[in-house]
Amino acid sequence: MAPLVSAVSRTADPFVRTGKRPTLAVWKFASCDGCQLTLLDCEDELLAVAGQVDVAYFLEASSATVEGPYDVSLVEGSITTAHDAKRIREIREMSGKLVTIGACATAGGIQALRNFAGPDGGPDVSAYAAAVYAHPEILDTLPTSTPISEHVFVDFELRGCPIDKHQLLEVVSATLAGRKPQIPNYSLCLECKRSGAVCVMVAHGQPCLGPATQAGCGAICPNFSRGCYGCFGPHEGPNMPALGDRFAELGVDADGWLRALRTYNAYAGPFRKEADHVERTRS
């Protein structure tokens, strides 16, 4: 049988044959740390990860750091300050592959709600800041929360709030092997049906974002008889108006539909556009 490795060019297979362990860095921007924790949560696979990569920078796990450049950077969090907008460009400069992990990094996260908080539906952080902080005047923040891909080139985006551990291991494995990660972009319903769950929309009359949401979590909520909250963001081609109509038929009013859209992935294109439309047209 033909050798597996020789079929792959050296450039597409950057780490396998060099004999040197690639360096991995994990970076945090505006986020809750949950996605970084998913890496530590790998438990059984953690030693294997450590065996394959040299974890050079990962403050969540160790204060010992190695200077860049790094072969692979995992980036968590969104860009919410001018300082971070500059820092992500520096990280991009010293990273071979840059993979964003989680809804904050891929879509701006829950903090992107500020992007629509103004009276005209535009960005405004002041109301949130005043509600949260005793001295909002000391804050120095951008009016928006934006995904990393709005600032630098991203090699791969891994969705989820938080990301799924198996998908993270697949992305790391694929990156090390120089192959395309097997991360589907289709609807959650495919995963839900494969898992054997009973459709909560059809059998229980519950609103569910699954038909518009990208697979990846393993359909956790429907397997516990709850509708999908859209943690993995919009799938490759959702029909948002049609799902909105269906929500209405299930008794969800325009406010409810808007709230369903404006959560962790509120700033992701299809969710954002549908929510904007609802806001403009509701009475």
Binding site: E45, A48, V49, G51, Q52, L169, E170, V172, S173, A174, L176, A177, R179, Q182, Y186, S187, L188, C189, L190, K193, R194, C199, G210, P211, A212, H235, E236, G237, P238, N239, A242, L243, R246
Partner: peptide, 25 residues
């Protein structure tokens, strides 16, 4: 909705995809 539920619930739909993966090592 492009959700695919009809095809997965259908008793005759047979389309499948084949995925190759490698492990961490």
């Amino acid at each position: 909705l492009a959700c695919g539920n009809c095809t997965l619930a259908c008793p005759t739909c047979f389309c499948n995809t084949v995925e190759d993966t490698t492990d961490l090592t």
